[in-house]
């Protein structure tokens, strides 16, 4: 494992923990898209089914379990415990527009036409667009709390760091995976606008608000 891959995992973990803590400490999930969180729970569930079929390392297994557990905990906090604070009115992105194309594409373009591989591929495609409901929510309300911006920044950085990891692996091991690579590029591109706002506003101590 190279440093980019490790930092990517770390950044992903930080994002997930920031979100859980934000909801827990403020007793509120306002400004958070429950729909994106449902998509992430689906992503982790379909990708990590290999937990039952093959063991890779203690690190690999524990990270997978932590990601899955945290994502379900987040969904529970939003739709269960702190439901009263959930922004139903603004969180209106139609997730079937992401789920259906990802599923169709996974059936058409995959490495191997087997259930586990198709689900893995589906999770890669779905993850690349799973943040859209959250970005849609931010654009609809026109602002994001600073802590939510930190969450989005850590989550966006994770795939960017993975891209560097894949670049590294290509040159050092000749390894590349086009499905993950192209999806990773799309995923990172979706954050570009946000990255710009984050660097130009949030890092200078201002709240993230969109120009009217």
């Amino acid at each position: 494992m190279n440093v980019f891959r490790f930092l990517g995992d770390l950044s992903h973990l930080v994002a997930i923990v920031i979100l859980l803590l934000k909801i827990w400490k403020t007793r509120s999930c306002s400004g958070i898209s429950g729909r994106s969180q449902i998509l992430f729970a689906i992503v982790f569930t379909t990708r990590y089914l290999d937990l039952f079929s093959n063991f890779i390392s203690v690190y690999n297994t524990s990270m997978k379990i932590v990601y899955i557990t945290c994502s379900y905990a987040t969904v529970y906090l939003i739709y269960g415990k702190f439901k009263a604070t959930y922004d139903f009115n603004h969180d209106t992105f139609r997730i079937e527009f992401l789920l259906v194309p990802s599923a169709i594409l996974a059936f058409l373009v995959n490495h191997d036409f087997s259930p586990l591989e198709i689900l893995w591929t589906f999770s890669i495609y779905l993850e690349s667009v799973a943040i859209l409901p959250q970005l849609f929510l931010v654009s609809k309300t026109g602002e994001a709390e600073t802590i939510t911006s930190h969450y989005l920044f850590a989550l966006g950085s994770y795939r960017l760091l993975y891209l560097l990891n894949w670049l590294w692996r290509y040159f050092s091991q000749g390894f590349y995976d086009l499905i993950a690579l192209l999806s990773g590029i799309l995923q990172t591109v979706l954050y570009c606008d946000f990255f710009y706002l984050y660097i130009s506003k949030v890092l200078k101590g201002k709240k993230l608000s969109l120009p009217a």
Partner: peptide, 10 residues
């Protein structure tokens, strides 16, 4: 091998 490599990533 490639499949194993891919499943090693998170």
């Amino acid at each position: 091998k490639d499949q194993e490599d891919r499943h090693d990533e998170l």
